[in-house]
C-alpha cells in the first residue's frame, strides 16, 4: 500500500487531538496533513508544528440541520481529496461524515490507540452500524442465557500445553528436570 500523501485529521472534543497529530506526523513525515477544527478551537504551537494546513470550520457547519452550511463544509472536505481521513471516535455520525468526504481510506484512531477501519461508502457505514447493534444484541442474549441459565454447556478444562509429539528428546530431558523442581518440598526438606 502506498503511503498517503494527503491526510485529514478531524477534530473531536473530549479526546487527545494533539496525540493523534503527533502520531500522524511521526507515521507519515512526508504527507501533507490538514487539521480540521472548529473555528472556536485553536492549535498550540506544538500541534501546529505537526500539520501543514489548518481548516477552521464554523461550528454550525457541523450540523446537517443547517443544510447549506453543512453542504459547503462537505464540499470543502471533499476538495481536500484525502488519501487518509482520520476520525477520533468510531461513531455513526463521524463515519457518515468521513465517508461523505470521499477519502481513499477512512479510519478511526480511537482513545485506546486502536486503528479501526471504517467503510468509505455512506450506505455501508449505516449498514455496519445497524448490523453491529443487531449482532451485538444477539450475542449478548446468547451469553446472558449461558450465564443466567443452567450450565448446559459444560466444557473440559482449557489446555494450552504443547502437543506431546512436538517435544524433542532434548526438550523432554529439560522438562523432566523442571518437573523435579516443581515437586512440592517434603516435610523433612
Amino acid at each position: 500500500m502506498t503511503p498517503p500523501e494527503r491526510i485529514v485529521v478531524f477534530y473531536s472534543a473530549d479526546a487527545d487531538y494533539a496525540a493523534r497529530l503527533r502520531a500522524a506526523r511521526r507515521a507519515f513525515p512526508d504527507a501533507r496533513i490538514t487539521a480540521v477544527i472548529p473555528a472556536t478551537q485553536t492549535l498550540s504551537d506544538g500541534e501546529r508544528a505537526c500539520v501543514d494546513h489548518v481548516h477552521a470550520a464554523e461550528p454550525a457547519a457541523y450540523s446537517p440541520v443547517r443544510v447549506r452550511r453543512f453542504l459547503g463544509f462537505l464540499r470543502a472536505l471533499r476538495a481536500m481529496r484525502a488519501d487518509l481521513f482520520i476520525v477520533m471516535f468510531d461513531s455513526l455520525r463521524l463515519g457518515l461524515l468521513g465517508a461523505a468526504a470521499r477519502p481513499r481510506r477512512l479510519v478511526c484512531w480511537d482513545g485506546e490507540m486502536r486503528i479501526i477501519p471504517i467503510p468509505r461508502c455512506v450506505l455501508l457505514v449505516a449498514t455496519r452500524a445497524a448490523v453491529r447493534v443487531v449482532v451485538g444484541h444477539l450475542r449478548w442474549l446468547v451469553r446472558a442465557a449461558r450465564i443466567y441459565g443452567p450450565d448446559l454447556w459444560h466444557q473440559p478444562p482449557l489446555d494450552h500445553s504443547r502437543p506431546e509429539g512436538k517435544v524433542s528428546p532434548r526438550e523432554r530431558r529439560f522438562l523432566n528436570r523442571l518437573d523435579r523442581l516443581r515437586r512440592p518440598p517434603t516435610p523433612d526438606a
Binding site: 486502536r114 451485538g136 450475542r139 446472558a144 450465564i147 459444560h154 478444562p157
Partner: peptide, 28 residues
C-alpha cells in the same frame, strides 16, 4: 454488557468477550 450489545468494544471489553470470562470454565 454495553460493549457486547453495542458491538463497539473497548480493549478490555473485547478481552472479556474473547477470553469468555463469564463462563464457569474461565472461573476454573
Amino acid at each position: 454488557s454495553r460493549d457486547l450489545r453495542s458491538g463497539k468494544f473497548t480493549t478490555y471489553g473485547l478481552e472479556f468477550d474473547r477470553a469468555r470470562a463469564w463462563t464457569p470454565r474461565y472461573e476454573r
